[in-house]
Design a binder for these strands. Structure first.
Lengths: 116, 116
DNA sequence: GGAATTCGTTTCGGAGGCGTATTGTTTCCC
DNA sequence: GGGAAACAATACGCCTCCGAAACGAATTCC
């Protein structure tokens, strides 16, 4: 239990974050895309389309499209699994890692600015 | 400076939150819509289309559309300003207040589950 | 080896968002 | 009072996403 704060603080943090994401532009990722991206970068590999779809409770085309979009942005890449060539393994990229890292720093920064 | 945590904790919190928003369905609000909604419920009224657009750095139709969508969901309502009938004042609703409250509780809950 | 299964992708029609430009009201200013 | 300005909403063409279904390729099962 490292982090404890009140709902009002949580909401202000979330507000500031959504606000920053909107104002910065660039990042128009949906909640689904963000969930996929963070799952890939925070949870242990390997990540497959099927696994991500099951984990998020969405259909496979949703994952395919999210990977298309974020792949186009360079935030991740795909590779066929050599041991079972039906599978596609999602791979992290340097650009994606930097993006996620920057996101984490941004949240911390907003949290530090919160009133007590 | 009430809240301090590490980027890794911040990211996990954000991941869990995006994850919950996706899995719960219902809420498919974009970052822009969330930013508008939270601004309305966290910052002091009155809120006009023009003011919200300026604050978020987007065009007015973006705000109009966001208000359309969230109004349809019952999360807020609109009313013409009687003192200046060109303005539209955004009003909070009970349903919207409950939604925001639940969102805050959800964030706090996720934060409490964070590893130290 | 051939049928059934699994996996990711693509297709289809539909819904909703985007930015720009325009419209209809209302108010301001002289 | 009449023209200019301010406000929110709408029209337009474009783009992306959605879920359901169909698809091709690879694997598994007898």
């Amino acid at each position: 239990m490292a982090i404890e704060f009140r709902p009002s603080q949580a909401l202000k943090l979330f507000h500031d974050l959504a606000f920053a994401l909107v104002r910065d532009g660039e990042t128009d990722l949906s909640a689904r895309q963000l969930a996929v991206l963070l799952t890939i970068y925070l949870e242990a590999p390997p990540h497959t389309v099927r696994g991500l779809a099951a984990k998020l409770g969405v259909t496979k085309p949703v994952i395919t499209r999210a990977l298309d979009t974020m792949g186009r942005l360079g935030l991740l890449s795909r590779r066929r699994d050599d041991s079972d060539r039906r599978n596609v393994v999602v791979q992290r990229t340097v650009k994606g890692a930097l993006y996620v890292e920057r996101l984490g720093d941004m949240i911390v920064e907003k949290a530090n600015g919160l009133p007590s």
